[in-house]
Design a protein around this nucleic acid. Sequence first.
DNA 1: ACGGCAAGTAAGTAGGTACTTGCATACACG
DNA 2: CGTGTATGCAAGTACCTACTTACTTGCCGT
Lengths: 191, 191
Amino acid sequence: MISRERILEAAGRVYAKHGFRGATTRLIAAEAGVNEVTLFRTFGSKGALLEAVLDANDHCQQIRRLPDPPVDPEAELTSWVNDHLQRVRDMRPMLIHAISELDERPEVAEFACRGRAEVHVLLDDYVASLQRLGRADPAADTFGAVTMLISSVMGDAMGRPMAPDSFPPAEEAARRYVRCFLRAIGAGHSR
Amino acid sequence: MISRERILEAAGRVYAKHGFRGATTRLIAAEAGVNEVTLFRTFGSKGALLEAVLDANDHCQQIRRLPDPPVDPEAELTSWVNDHLQRVRDMRPMLIHAISELDERPEVAEFACRGRAEVHVLLDDYVASLQRLGRADPAADTFGAVTMLISSVMGDAMGRPMAPDSFPPAEEAARRYVRCFLRAIGAGHSR
DNA sequence: ACGGCAAGTAAGTAGGTACTTGCATACACG
DNA sequence: CGTGTATGCAAGTACCTACTTACTTGCCGT
């Protein structure tokens, strides 16, 4: 039953390119090099196939953790942000379509939303550790700053392809976001 | 020729809800309370109608300027960010669909991209003024910080409806983003 | 050699899509 | 009155869509 995998992969590619409405069963079958009937025999319907695709692309994304306790915040955060940036860039096309179809296909909501909350608590914990160690301003708006950092990563991954001039060069982006972030939480001078 | 306006408005609503593929000419005509044929007689084709819709919704958005010279950065920026936030929230559905359809309908690119660049130079100029007045750290990464602030506004407007817990309360959001921003550019202590 | 099972092939169903055509209606202006 | 001009209505075209049915092929283990 090798067809199942081929169809899943092909459907993922086609869906990422054209969205649900544009991802016709013909296109998917052709992309998979498989007969259209096989697609229906294996997944039952186009909707079920899409759910399987999102499931497959959801489970395989495990978010990296941050060191506890923090040692070198700038380096650790920069590396982590770079990682996350890459992950979001990879999911970008699928994410965009999932979001734009949220009203009509609510079952994609989990795929579209879940990541953000997890990432948020991860960063919140890290900053709390910094504060506990006296290495970040305890009065800073850490929640706001974390929100901004995450939005910056999302915005970069989503927006750079369409407006590259509005972002720092790709290889500097993570470091610069992190530095601004650290200044915002009063941890700008790492020692 | 009142039909033209009614069709344009209806098409805008339907497109914002369902995207290009989902915005069938039937739906639009029904929403406008107009015969489907009238739609084709007035705009020629569905594609031309969409272009007209984006044009109409593009021209009518004039971006507010920031005071020059700056007097009270936190207040001025907060008010401006609130404004911009509201504007992006209003365009959110249309924007999301435009972005997700960029590959298939490149003619929407301008609608999707133009705003960001303009906003960027606006904020850059404002921060440059602050630096010239000695009220912001001249060594700060202003470009990075501005990018982050804009991404935060976009991220808030786009993401809050799907993940409200990942953002500060709506009425505080602008102020908190601005405060983090000012700290990042070394202008945290406004006097 | 034979049964079972995944897969291909061909054809069809029922409905939706953008878009067209031909004709009837109504209102505005001279 | 007559004459455009905008609109509605009914029908039709050509094509695409998800999905089904019935039959065939090829391979795999026993």
